[in-house]
Design a binder for these strands. Structure first.
Length: 891
RNA sequence: GGGCGCGUAGCUCAGCGGGAGAGCACACCCUUCACACGGGUGGGGUCGUAGGUUCAAUCCCUACCGCGCCCACCA
């Protein structure tokens, strides 16, 4: 027997370990069943579950549980990501709180902190990982995620590291990874290069400073405008447009860089826009991406004036050396003003690149880094997306993918961090590089090259986190070993992730998958929006609007949160606004289903062993089975099309709107009435429908359905619900559907009329039927008890005409009168009837206009015309009966 | 600057060319023996604006207005 109330907390804590330990989540690569595989977007190993995870993983689990029940051999491959920068940041912050720091070369230190070297630091990170690394996976379990934990991987575990090395070395040998010295986005706080993708532009209200640079050998000045005065110390030229009448006469001359005294050429270059600033632009090749290009075109020197901390170097006049960049800015503006060379300052809003992790403005910085030839690697993925080997849901994801892939820049894969996969490159005494799988191999190569043993120095850099994530769909399956899992599950079926990492991750998995596996990493990319708060604001801890999924689970249960997430997951939504009220509604839905089952149990609903839905006789039961079939099909269709919100909506409407509101109510007189075949059949159908419904609900609400499955005895017979086969839709019956549609309509209309006329809810009225045909009479007889109960009437009898002072409704070919004596307000009833008549007349007029339109008749398809005629017939019939009813009131 | 998405009931949103929907909120009624995390009934919408395509437009097209996101090197 089910408990009076549903207690998610207790049930969830019990059910999950049971599933896991029973092996229900396990994949069976050795089985002959078709495989279905999803690889989890690996969360940061030291992170904790946020709403985005809750959404993403709920959607995956729904698909996984559904396919599992459909009979596939499913693998939901779990694991975590080492998340280089993010994790390093967290650990450094923790260390700082404990009075420790990193022994970073060149950093200022007051000597009060204990400085850790690389080895010591890595030890701390691994400690931190061991301490907090289980948090996120534990939280995924609370959500109900049915991952095969026995196959859990970590991007820095031995196997995956081996894969990373192999990929790096092979790409290097194929010329697809190389070193280059060019400008990168440099994070002066994290002290590392980052990729273009990790740059976020922020609108900043700054100034445009106009400086006058004296022209050599003349009294003239050229005016340049800049948002970054401090970079002038690195200027090696000024560019003007070749056709600019204002400045072109200066081309070929030189300016004298103030404060520095350097002689810098004035060049003509179309990059310079006469409309912008002063029309002349100062060129700082070492600190601006555009200037770098201009500098290259005109062979201007690139002078680095910043070190890795963005402090001024010895390349600038002594006065400024060592200054922090923004301090330098103030001083330089002041000095220029003092020199009379500051023409004006204009307020100017512009966007400044920030590091998405460090949160400080980035510096374009000239350094040597490792790059992957993204352009080349993108070719096959583009082709695969074009010919449909990989599809996107929604489709427009494909366009975004193309836009990015077709304009892709070299991918800077090296990071100046300690936490991550150290690049397998060693340098000889002359800086010659040896890339190899191991130090031994590198040494061997070096020996061959130098003809003797030399000391090699390993490249200190690590790889971009996304480098190892890019291998995830095959590295987790065992690659480079040719495992059974790899053979069976690659390509994986569905990748479920947010739009935000389409480029970071999805695109790169495509590159690596196509290159190393010669096939797409997944057949379908299912992209969902971002969860935001009710106002559409991105959730963040700093804004204080973050909702904690675990709190919601505690309060409403994991099933409620899951159901809400599924409801939110409309394909086209960019943002998915979540409010606690919605989760509460889902919790209520869970409770509703629980109570329906409890009710059935209390009334002895049980499923005979040999129950066959095809043998059902009663129309109410046939109809119920038909509704079940429709719900089943709706859920299947919705899940196949990745419309998870529609699946959730269909389930909600079916369980609450059909099963609870109608079926259970209509059959109460039967199941609570005298014993007999009708009672037996109805109890059996009730049990059957609830059992099948539990299956349909299971992918979305696994906990409550498993509990119900067990408590109602199915588990003892068939085993756990998680492993049950997906239901087959029973047959539908048109005649039964017609009859029940009529019944629902009749009851609803009576209720509605009663309520509108303010008939006291407790008043039991007689129902008099005027003009009912044989079918109707039979139906009334069949459903007498249900009608009496739900419409609150007492006695149903035929009459030749409606009695005076009766409330009247028309359903089908008959009029139903409820004599209310002097209780009725004749005026109100007249008004109600008149309103109904008017509504119908309007509808009829509209249809007549259509049917009278020659173009409509000529061009509309036959079934549409027929449908309109049908609607008109019914409306007219009802209208006429209502007119009679109105007349009988004497109104 | 380019690209994309969104403007439908008070709020949050479904709606995939032929009768405007849900949840929440609101109003009235109901301590009916599964459920007040409940039951019944109801009010509320020029489907952003203006054009166009079509027999027919909330749905397709164009422009505009208002939001949001992504990308981009604009001094």
């Amino acid at each position: 027997m089910l408990d009076k109330t549903y207690d998610p907390k207790e049930i969830e804590a019990r059910r999950y370990p049971e599933w896991e330990s029973s092996g229900a989540f396990k994949a069976h690569p050795e089985s002959a069943r078709p495989g279905y595989c999803i690889v989890i977007p690996p969360p940061n190993v030291t992170g904790s579950l946020h709403m985005g995870h809750a959404l993403d993983n709920t959607l995956q689990d729904i698909l996984i549980r559904w396919r599992r029940m459909k009979g596939d051999d499913v693998l939901w491959q779990p694991g975590t990501d080492h998340a280089g920068i993010a994790t390093q940041m967290v650990v450094v912050r923790n260390l700082e709180a404990e009075g420790m720091g990193l022994a970073v070369e060149g950093a200022k230190d007051d000597g009060n902190r204990k400085l850790l070297n690389r080895e010591q630091f890595l030890e701390k990170v691994w400690e931190w990982k061991a301490y907090s690394g289980g948090t996120i996976t534990g939280q995924l379990r609370r959500l109900g995620a049915s991952c095969d934990w026995s196959r859990e991987r970590f991007t820095m575990d031995e196997g995956l590291s081996k894969a990373v090395l192999k990929v790096f070395v092979e790409l290097y040998r194929q010329g697809l990874i190389y070193k280059d010295n060019r400008l990168v986005n440099w994070d002066p706080k994290m002290l590392t290069a980052i990729s273009d993708l990790e740059v976020e532009s922020r609108e900043v209200k700054g100034n445009l400073w106009y400086f006058r640079y004296p022209i050599e050998g003349s009294d003239e000045h050229i005016v340049v405008a800049t948002t970054r005065p401090e970079t002038m110390l690195g200027d090696t030229g000024v560019a003007v447009h070749p056709d600019d009448p204002k400045w072109k006469h200066l081309i070929g001359k030189h300016a004298v860089l103030p404060l520095v005294g350097r002689r810098i050429p004035i060049v003509g270059d179309e990059y310079s826009d006469p409309e912008k600033g002063s029309g002349a632009v100062k060129i700082t090749p070492a600190h601006d991406f555009n200037d770098f290009e201009v500098g290259r075109r005109h062979k201007l020197e690139a002078i680095s004036i910043f070190d890795k901390f963005a402090h001024l170097t010895d390349a600038v006049p002594e006065k400024y050396r060592g200054l922090e960049r923004f301090t330098a800015r103030k001083l330089i503006v002041a000095d220029m003003e003092a020199a009379g060379l500051l023409e004006k300052i204009e307020p100017h809003a512009h966007s400044v690149p920030y590091g998405d992790r460090g949160g400080v403005p980035l510096e374009p910085f000239l350094t040597e880094q490792w790059y992957a030839d993204a352009k080349k690697l993108a070719e096959k993925p583009i082709a695969a997306a074009r010919d449909g080997r990989v599809t996107f849901v929604p489709e427009r994801g494909r366009d975004d993918f193309f836009r990015w892939m077709e304009n892709i820049q070299p991918w800077c894969v090296s990071r100046q961090l300690w936490w991550g996969h150290q690049i397998p490159a060693w340098y000889g005494p002359d800086r010659k590089v040896f890339v190899a799988l191991s130090e031994e191999d590198a040494k061997a190569e070096a020996r061959k090259h130098y003809g003797k043993d030399v000391t090699l120095e390993r490249d200190p850099d690590v790889l971009d986190t996304w480098f190892s994530s890019a291998l995830w769909p095959f590295s987790t399956l065992g690659w480079p070993d040719q495992t059974a899992a790899l053979a069976k599950y690659y390509p994986t079926n569905t990748l479920v992730t947010g739009w935000d990492i389409l480029f970071f991750w999805v695109a790169r998995m495509m590159m690596m998958g196509m290159h190393f596996m010669a096939d797409v990493p997944f057949r379908t990319v299912y992209l969902h929006g971002l969860v935001t708060d009710e106002k559409g604001q991105k959730m963040s801890k700093s804004k204080g609007n973050a909702m904690d999924p675990l709190e919601l689970i505690d309060k409403y249960g994991a099933d409620a949160l899951r159901f809400t997430m599924a409801s939110l997951a409309a394909n086209n939504a960019g943002r998915l606004r979540l409010s606690p009220a919605r989760v509460e509604g889902s919790r209520n839905f869970a409770t509703k289903f629980w109570n329906a089952t409890r009710f059935a149990e209390m009334n002895g609903a049980a499923l005979p062993r040999d129950f066959d839905p095809a043998t059902v006789k009663l129309n109410v039961n046939k109809w119920m089975l038909g509704e079940l079939a429709r719900a089943n099909q709706a859920v299947d269709r919705a899940l196949s099309d990745f419309r998870l919100n529609e699946a959730a909506a269909a389930l909600y409407e079916f369980v609450w709107g059909i099963v609870c509101d109608w079926y259970v109510e209509l059959t109460k007189p039967i199941v609570q009435g005298p014993d007999g075949v009708e009672k037996d059949e109805t109890r059996a159908v009730t049990a059957y429908v609830l059992r099948e419904t539990a299956k349909l609900l299971h992918p979305v609400m696994p906990f409550i359905t498993e509990e119900i499955w067990d408590k109602t005895g199915h588990r003892a017979e068939h085993g756990a619900l998680i492993g049950q086969p997906w239901p087959k839709a029973p047959a539908t019956d048109e005649a039964a559907d017609g009859e029940m549609g009529w019944l629902v309509r009749l009851i609803s209309d009576i209720r509605s009329a009663r309520s509108e006329l303010n008939v006291p809810a407790g008043a039991k009225l007689k129902l008099m039927v005027v003009g009912g045909d044989a079918t109707t009479k039979l139906r009334l007889k069949t459903h007498e008890a249900a009608i009496e109960r739900l419409a609150r009437v007492e006695g149903i009898e035929a009459a030749s005409a409606a009695p005076k002072g009766a409330l009247q409704i028309v359903v089908g070919e008959a009029t139903y009168a409820l004599p209310v004596g002097d209780v009725i307000d004749l005026k109100a009833e007249s008004a109600r009837l008149a309103k109904e008549i008017k509504k119908l007349a309007d509808e009829i007029a509209k249809i007549d206009a259509k049917l009278g339109n020659a173009n409509f008749m000529a061009r509309a398809p036959e079934d549409v015309v027929e449908e309109q005629r049908d609607r008109r017939r019914q409306a007219e019939q009802t209208r006429q009966r209502l007119v009679v009813a109105l007349q009988s009131l004497g109104g």
